[in-house]
């Protein structure tokens, strides 16, 4: 599943995950001032968001978001 969830009770809307995500997965809900997952399918399970979140609000699992053909 890659990035599974953002705990909205912990998210402070700092925007670090949005800035640093290499795959452009997150966007900001300006009204609520919380980040949300917008493009889950492009998540590459790099865990950068989870590592960089200062509030420990993000949880990831290293499973594939899209089918990648096997070489054999």
């Amino acid at each position: 599943m890659g990035v599974r969830k953002i705990d909205l009770t912990l998210c402070t809307g700092c925007g670090i995950c949005i800035d640093e995500c290499p795959m452009d997965v997150f966007r900001m809900d300006d009204e609520k001032n919380k980040a949300f997952i917008k493009y889950l399918r492009d998540c590459q399970s790099c865990f950068i968001c989870e590592r960089e979140c200062p509030e420990d609000a993000i949880y990831c699992l290293p499973t594939f978001e899209r089918r990648i053909p096997d070489p054999w």
């Binding site: 800035d19 640093e20 995500c21 290499p22 950068i48």
Partner: peptide, 12 residues
């Protein structure tokens, strides 16, 4: 295209 220091192969 993403964030210098985070995208590409180096950061991972």
């Amino acid at each position: 295209k993403a964030y210098a220091g985070r995208s590409g192969c180096s950061a991972c």
